[in-house]
């Protein structure tokens, strides 16, 4: 067993610097790497590029980095939940690259899997395709999209072990598995660190080879954006 376990978030984020590009898992606030985000705020790294489906909300998630004006550029598919984001974008302080959600996921997966680029039909004929190579296959038009390049990927899993194996829960899985191994260094934080051998190899979602550092996260808030219930 190759040991990937580090003792805390500080050790996990060693080497993080200003002007780097980060991938961060999560859909809305579901499955975001809360501990890594807090540490990025504490380290006060500046001028960073963040690849994340959403940009958090005011006061939580990536909203914390935005408020602190640490982010130079956001690459996301949907950013409608954050007033500070909108303010920075409309004032030109923040550079924003909106990418179709499936393309965003696949640009991560392509980096993980060693593909330099891929063709997708998403965005053809729209401003997303402007300046990009297009090509016809079987009578349909496609847009060439390059894989992402990132320095660190920060992901959050439900369970993990020192070998770096990960298991996700519910829809908090989302982009997290696609970002594992898609950056130079992948840092996984887990709600529950289990003993090596405890995870059934049949049920491992991400094999440890895609993870460089893993640590036991703490104080998860797991905020719900839209608490929606029915009455009994």
């Amino acid at each position: 067993m190759i040991n990937k376990k580090v003792k805390n978030v500080q050790e996990a984020l060693l080497g993080v610097k200003s002007e780097m590009t980060f991938m961060l898992g999560g859909f809305g606030l579901c499955g975001i790497p809360e501990n890594a985000i807090s540490e990025l705020v504490r380290l006060d790294v500046r001028e960073v590029t963040c690849i994340s489906n959403n940009a958090g909300v005011d006061g939580f998630g990536l909203g914390l980095l935005l408020e602190n004006k640490q982010i130079k550029k956001m690459i996301s598919s949907y950013v409608g939940e954050n007033d500070e984001f909108e303010r920075q974008m409309l004032s030109g302080e923040l550079e924003v690259e909106l990418t179709p959600q499936g393309t965003l996921a696949e640009k991560c997966r392509a980096a993980q899997a060693g593909f330099p680029a891929f063709y997708t039909p998403a965005g053809y004929g729209t401003e997303v395709a402007e300046g990009k190579e297009t090509r016809e296959f079987d009578g349909k038009m496609y847009v060439l999209e390059p894989a992402f390049k990132a320095d660190f990927a920060f992901v959050k899993a439900w369970k993990g072990d020192a070998a770096g194996n990960l298991v996700f829960k519910g829809t908090s899985r989302n982009f997290n598995p696609n970002m594992c191994g898609a950056a130079t260094i992948t840092v996984a934080e887990v709600e529950e660190m289990v003993e090596v051998g405890e995870l059934d190899p049949n049920n491992v979602h991400i094999p440890g080879i895609f993870v460089q550092r893993i640590f036991q996260g703490k104080d998860y808030e797991k905020r719900i954006e839209q608490r929606t219930v029915r009455q009994k």
Binding site: S77, Y78, V79, L98, G102, T103, T120, G123, Y124
Partner: peptide, 11 residues
């Protein structure tokens, strides 16, 4: 607000 998954869906 962004396209979310809409561009992938309609394409």
């Amino acid at each position: 607000k962004g396209m979310g998954g809409a561009m992938d869906l309609v394409a």
